[in-house]
C-alpha cells in the first residue's frame, strides 16, 4: 500500500473537496438555474423544464452533501469555523433547498389548483438558494468578516451567482428542449451571460485588492504567465459562447450542446482561479489545509474508500445521463 505523508493527504483531500464543490456548482447549478428561470406564464413549459431536471436533481444535490461532508471529515476545525461565521446564510440556503426540493415532488401530486403554489415555491427556493450560495462565497472572499463593504460585496456576489446559475440552467434547457421554449432559453442565456460576465470581471478585480496574498499569487513571475491563461480561457469562452448563441438554433439541432459545454468551462476556470487565489488557506488568512486536516489514519481509511467508490459513482452517473439523453419533452414522471 502506498505511504502518503500527512501533508500529501491534506492536499489530496483539499483537492477532492474543491472538486466536489466544482462538480456541485455545475450540476446543481444547472438545475437551480432552471428553477430560477421557471416560466411562470405557461404550465406546459414549466412541466417540460422541470422534467428536464427531474431524474438528476437529487444526485446533483448529493455533491453538496459530499463537499460539506469532506470539509467536515477532513478539515473539521475549518468546517466549524467557516460555518459558524456563515451560520445565517447557510441556514437560509438549507431552508431554500428544503422548499425547492419538496416543491418538485408536491407539484406533481397535489390538487391541480395548488400546483402553482408549489411552482412559486420552487422558483423562489431556487433563487434564494443561489443567492445565499453567492452571499457565502462573497463573505468568504472578503476574509469571512462582516462589515458594510463585505456585506455589500456579498450581496453583489449573490446576484452574480443567480445570473451564473441562470446562464448554465438556460444552456441546459437549450440542450434539453426544442421549439419556442428553446428559443426563449437562447434569449435568456444571452442576458444571463452578460450579467455573469460583468460579475466575474468585478470579482477578478476586487479579490486581489482586498486580499494581499491573492495579489501576490497572481503577480508573482514566472507563474503569473501560466495563471494568466485561466482568465483568458474564461473570457474566450464568453466571447465564443455569445457568437454561438447568436446563431442558434441550427438545423437538426446541431450545436445545441455547445453553450452548456462552454459555460461549464467558464465555471471550471473561475473555480480554478479562486482556489489558486486561496491556496494553501482553507479559512482565508488564518488556517491552512495542513493545520486543519484530521488525523492521518482517518484520512487514509477515507482515501481508500474514495479511490474505490468514486470511479463507480462516475460510472453510474454517466449511465443515468445516457439513459435520459435527448429532449425532455417526452420524459414522463415514471
Amino acid at each position: 500500500m502506498m505511504d502518503l505523508s500527512h501533508p500529501q493527504l491534506a492536499i489530496i483531500f483539499a483537492s477532492l473537496t474543491a472538486l466536489s464543490i466544482l462538480v456541485y456548482a455545475i450540476l446543481d447549478g444547472y438545475d437551480l438555474g432552471v428553477g430560477i428561470c421557471l416560466s411562470m406564464s405557461k404550465e406546459e413549459w414549466r412541466d417540460t423544464e422541470i422534467a428536464s431536471i427531474g431524474p438528476f436533481w437529487d444526485a446533483n444535490e448529493t455533491w453538496l452533501v459530499l463537499a460539506v461532508g469532506l470539509l467536515l471529515v477532513a478539515f473539521p476545525v475549518a468546517h466549524s469555523e467557516i460555518l459558524r461565521v456563515l451560520y445565517l446564510p447557510a441556514s437560509l440556503l438549507l431552508i431554500a433547498l428544503i422548499l425547492r426540493g419538496v416543491a418538485f415532488d408536491f407539484r406533481a401530486k397535489v390538487k391541480p389548483k395548488n400546483k402553482i403554489h408549489w411552482d412559486i415555491c420552487f422558483k423562489v427556493g431556487s433563487i434564494l438558494a443561489a443567492f445565499s450560495q453567492g452571499f457565502m462565497l462573497g463573505i468568504y472572499i472578503m476574509g469571512l468578516k462582516y462589515n458594510i463593504w463585505s456585506s455589500l460585496f456579498a450581496v453583489f456576489s449573490g446576484v452574480c451567482v443567480i445570473a451564473a446559475y441562470a446562464l448554465i440552467g438556460n444552456t441546459w434547457l437549450i440542450l434539453k428542449t426544442s421549439g419556442e421554449l428553446q428559443k426563449r432559453a437562447i434569449q435568456r442565456s444571452k442576458q444571463a451571460g452578460i450579467v455573469s460576465f460583468i460579475g466575474i470581471l468585478t470579482v477578478c478585480l476586487v479579490n486581489p485588492l482586498v486580499n494581499a496574498n491573492v495579489l501576490a499569487v497572481w503577480t508573482q513571475l514566472p507563474m503569473a504567465y501560466l495563471y494568466a491563461a485561466i482568465p483568458l480561457l474564461c473570457f474566450v469562452m464568453f466571447a465564443l459562447g455569445y457568437a454561438v448563441l447568436k446563431r442558434l438554433p441550427l438545423k437538426n439541432d446541431s450545436g445545441a450542446w455547445l453553450p452548456f459545454l462552454m459555460t461549464s468551462i467558464v465555471f471550471v476556470s473561475c473555480f480554478v482561479g479562486l482556489t489558486l487565489s486561496f491556496y494553501p488557506y482553507v479559512v482565508p488568512n488564518t488556517l491552512t489545509i495542513y493545520q486543519a486536516a484530521s488525523a492521518k489514519s482517518s484520512l487514509e481509511i477515507m482515501l481508500y474508500g474514495t479511490l474505490v467508490v468514486v470511479p463507480i459513482i462516475v460510472m453510474y452517473t454517466f449511465i443515468a445521463y445516457y439513459a435520459f439523453r435527448g429532449k425532455a419533452d417526452t420524459l414522463r414522471y415514471y
Binding site: 422534467a51 431524474p55 444526485a59 453510474y316 443515468a320 435520459f324 415514471y334
Partner: peptide
C-alpha cells in the same frame, strides 16, 4: 440518489 432518477423516470 442516482438510481432514484432511473426508478422514477426510467420505466
Amino acid at each position: 440518489a442516482t438510481m432514484l432518477g432511473i426508478m422514477l423516470f426510467g420505466f
